[in-house]
Structure formats: structure tokens, C-alpha cells
Design a protein around this nucleic acid. Structure first.
Lengths: 219, 219
DNA sequence: ACAGAATTAGACCGGCGGTCTAATCACTGG
DNA sequence: CCAGTGATTAGACCGCCGGTCTAATTCTGT
């Protein structure tokens, strides 16, 4: 009568931080270097100096290890709280100013933390990684949903399209712009990059604005 | 003195269409069903009733087979030509009308051809697939570049951001919206989906429009 | 002290993408 | 007609992958 008392995940979280780091440090290095699919669990285990049996005792599979790695990094920045705060603006102008500031902070954070940036870009690029991180990802989507609904209530965000579509568009626009700067930023001076990055916020704003602003043309 | 006279690719293209299909038909099925990374070359070979040696004689690697599969499908529709044609509009209104029509046609095509849609979504989702398809992909990006430049010259497209960034944004917006409809379209009536799809074109248009249209708010 | 549960090491599994060898085929010049 | 030579072909083989299993060991409660 094996009643499945504890899960690998519960066992891992009961470990002290130092012991957790035995896996998480080499795992982060490997995932940053190779992404999710091409990262080798065997290499991580070898670098960690651990055995396969012990590793699978604490992690259900490779995805669980990736999830734990990314969760630790994400926990360090209070991203979700910042998103919630931005939702309290009283009018459209304030709303978009706050969102712009939030995006600027986010950009700065990613520039200052290569590891986190690398993990998040992997998350955006590889669907297997997204599946592993599904639960936290749903929370992020939920936070953006709330933010957009708040924006709608003060007329800052369009309400003629499904909110989940807007959320998807917002998330992917952020990721797309981030990736463009990650690939092309090195050809720019630091000042030029900052100015461009600020202006690129318009790319996120434009499709979310109520349609009256774009109806000047067509349709 | 092995002078590398022919490449696997050249050899494959010299084959008659029927023989090519021996690989391409089962390959397409496999890639549609499993995506790129999780597709098994061994399974494709088995389904094709071919041997490994012969297969690697005609394809450099798994990516080359994916590339050949997708290229055949893409060749069947004259996508690039359509993009070029749309660039000839004389003014902004006409430009966006043509682009809207182009997107509508593209949407219809993807709805009518599940295989092509599946392959293109795989291409968008998996970076390994993108690498295999790098050359055709560069041509597509080039065509969009040209289209946007044409739009700029008649004041239909903003010119305050790098063109490659706009191209990236446009490509990813199309893919994002397509994916949303692929996931959520089944919950909608056919009419509602068509109406929504048309309105969703605004999401693509908005960030590309000259900034004067969005400067009503902020900054 | 000792039974039973939790933990641990690492051999093992099927399958992967890709390489290699040895046999066969097709075509040439004599 | 056939010997010889390079292109073609089958499939055994390679290292590695993520994941499972077993058997030994270490803990824990009585």
C-alpha cells in the first residue's frame, strides 16, 4: 500500500539552502550555457558531484530542476509585486507612465543580471521549458491580465479584444524587443541604446491603446 | 584527394519528385505530429522504408530534412510574391488596406492547410528549426524589411525605430496572434472568429504606425 | 537491538542523431 | 566482355541522452 507520502519537490524544499545550491548552482550554469533541451542532466549531476539516484530523489525530472533553478532567480526580484503596484494608477497618462517606468526597471534588471536574462530568454524560446514552468508562468499571465483589466477600467487599455489575447501580445512583445536588444544592442552606444529602449516602449503601448488612437487610418 | 564534388542537398534535388516524396511525406507527418526536436529521424526512416545510409546520402542531417519538407510546402504558396505586391500601394490608407487583405488571405490559407500551419508554428516555436531554415527565413525577413521600407516612404510606417526591430516585431505579432487563434479559436463561432481575426489586425498595425498616432498619450 | 522506512549509488534501459564499413551497383576504357 | 573505379547503399555501431531499477546503506522509532 504505497501511499505516496512525499513528493520529490517537497523533499527538495525541506533541504537547507546550501544543500539545494549543490544542484542549483551547476544547473543554472548548464541551463544558461545550453538552454533547456540541450542542457545535459548528466553533466549537471557530474558537475554537482551528485549521483543519479539522489538527484531523482529530489527532482521528478529535468524540467523540475529547471523550474527550481528559475524559481530561485525569479524569487530574488519582486517582479509580480511591481506589476500589481503599477495597476493602481488613477488615469491613463499615469498608467502608461508607471508601465513605462516598470519596463525601464525590468530592462535595467535584465542588463544587470545576465543569468536571469539568459534563463528567461530560454523560457521564452523553448516550449519544453514553458511546460516545466507552467505554474509560475500562469501566475505571471494572471498578473498581466489584472494589470490590463485595471487599465481598461480607466480607459487606458482597449477593450475590443479578448484580454488573454492582449496578454499574450504584451508578453511576446516584451520578449521580442528584449531579444532584439540582446542581439543588436552591442552595435549601439550605451546612450543610444537607452534612448532606443525607451522609444521601443511605444511598440508595447501602441497595440494595447484603445482603438480610437489608431482609427485615424483605414478599416 | 577527396574534392567534395556533390553535396547531399544537390543529390536530393536531382531526384525525381516521386522519389523525393518517399522521405518528404513521412517526414512531414512526423514533424507535424511531434515538432522538430521531438521528431524521430529513425521513425521517419522506418516509415519511409529507407535505410540510414541512403537517407544521410541525401540529407546532411535532421535539419536538412526539415528544411526540405518545409520548403516544399512554402513553395506551393507564393507568399513572398504576395508580400512584394503589397508594397506598391500609393498612400497610407491603401497600404494598410492591402496589408490587411494580405493578412486575411494568409489567415485563410493557414486555416485551410493544417500541415503548413503546423510546420510554420513549429518553425516559430523551435529555435533549432529556425536554424535549419535560416536561409529561407532570411529571405522572408528581407521581404518584410522591403515592405516596411516601402511603407515608410509613403508615411504609412513609423521611421523612428530600426527597421530590423520593426520586422522582428511584425513577424512575432503575426505568429503570436496566429497561435492565440489556434489555441482559442475553437471556443468561438466561425463568424465571431472571423470578426475577431479582422480586428486583431489592429494589433499588428498599431505598433508600426507613425508615432504621431500614439503620441496622444504620455512620454 | 532491530524491524521497517527513507535514502543513496550507479548499473542499466531504450532511443536518439549521427558515423563507419563493407558490400553492391553503374559506368568507364581497353 | 570484363576489370576496375567511384558512387551508392544497408545497417551495425557509437557516444550520449533522460529516466528506471535494484540492492546496499543509513536513518528512525520502539
Amino acid at each position: 500500500m504505497p501511499t505516496e507520502t512525499t513528493t520529490p519537490r517537497q523533499r527538495f524544499e525541506a533541504l537547507d539552502e546550501q544543500t539545494q545550491a549543490r544542484w542549483l548552482v551547476p544547473a543554472e550554469a548548464e541551463f544558461c550555457e545550453h538552454g533547456f533541451e540541450k542542457a545535459s542532466l548528466n553533466r549537471i549531476i557530474a558537475r554537482a558531484g551528485e549521483s543519479k539516484g539522489r538527484t531523482y530523489h529530489y527532482f521528478a525530472d529535468k524540467g523540475a530542476l529547471f523550474c527550481a533553478t528559475l524559481e530561485r532567480r525569479v524569487r530574488q526580484c519582486d517582479f509580480l509585486d511591481q506589476v500589481s503596484e503599477a495597476a493602481s494608477a488613477p488615469n491613463a497618462t499615469g498608467y502608461w507612465l508607471e508601465l513605462g517606468a516598470l519596463c525601464a526597471r525590468l530592462t535595467k534588471m535584465l542588463q544587470g543580471d545576465d543569468r536571469l536574462a539568459s534563463l528567461l530568454r530560454t523560457l521564452h524560446r523553448e516550449s519544453a521549458a514553458q511546460q516545466s514552468f507552467a505554474e509560475p508562468l500562469a501566475a505571471i499571465r494572471g498578473a498581466i491580465d489584472d494589470l490590463l483589466v485595471a487599465g481598461q477600467s480607466i480607459g487606458a487599455v482597449r477593450d475590443d479584444l479578448p484580454i488573454t489575447l492582449l496578454t499574450e501580445v504584451a508578453l511576446n512583445l516584451i520578449a521580442t524587443v528584449d531579444r532584439w536588444f540582446a542581439l543588436n544592442g552591442s552595435t549601439l552606444s550605451e546612450d543610444a541604446e537607452a534612448a532606443l529602449s525607451q522609444r521601443a516602449f511605444l511598440l508595447l503601448m501602441a497595440p494595447l491603446l484603445p482603438s480610437q488612437f489608431t482609427e485615424g487610418i483605414s478599416l
